[in-house]
Amino acid sequence: MHWKRSTRWMAILLPVLFVAPTVAVTTSAQESENLYTSRLDLRMGRSVFRAQCTTCHGLNAGGGNEGVGPDLTTGRFRRADSDLGLYRIIRDGVPGTSMTGVGTDASEQSVWQLVTYLRSLNDFSSAADLPGSAEAGQRIFVGKGDCAQCHMVNGQGGRLGPNLSLLGEQRDPETIQAALLDPNADVDPRWWTMRATGPNGQSFEGVRMNEDTFTFRIMDAEENLRAFSKYGDWSYERVQTSTMPSYADNLTVDEREDLVAYLYSLRSKP
């Protein structure tokens, strides 16, 4: 079928904007439900992804080098919040952007397999059989671990470290455990430290809120926001280590397992 452009726009935008009611009213059960979710389908989807999508989205869907395609591993898609929405975008593309669809020549099966692959990139078990106690871990978080000093969970806590309210949707237990033992192994540049020294010897230090070609901005230990120019009277230094201490010695093995269980339980939907 060759649609006129305006008709095609409507066909793409409507499902994206009104996913739930549109699915129920205008699509067949076969179209709206992914029937291709086996491990074989996942492998096939990965194969199709690597043939069709890596140029823009990167080999493992983490985003393309050229900055063309966004990171698809976060489990959150700006233009689709259902499998059908993903299906439509993969098949038809996004008009007015670089995202070209695989087209109607591609089989329905292969498009659904792509959906299965993308979903698998963020499919952390919600009921992991972890050895620790989440309740005990929460007490460590606000108590002995002193984590809430820097980390916020659901609006409570500090601002000097990442907000952990959705950590269970973003990291697996092994990664959380590793970060507790060696916080410097993989420090997000957002949490590097910047030190600024003024012409009269005054100095400030804080977490790196943002840095660009000419300026940088920090949050200091008192959670004040400060901005600096790189080409004014101030000198600056970038420290690429974490401000978080290692919990290898500060917590027992059991306490760390409790803390991991708590952190992994932090999700938008329990």
């Binding site: 043939a51 069709q52 890596t54 140029t55 080999l59 080098n65 540049p189």
Partner: peptide
């Protein structure tokens, strides 16, 4: 990365892909 890929006219034909190992700030 490299991989085998058959040529299909009108489809991408890259034979692999790339990834940047660290955040761009590095």
């Amino acid at each position: 990365f490299s991989r085998e890929q058959d040529y299909n006219e009108g489809s991408t034909f890259t034979g692999g892909g790339t990834e940047t190992p660290l955040p761009i700030d590095h």
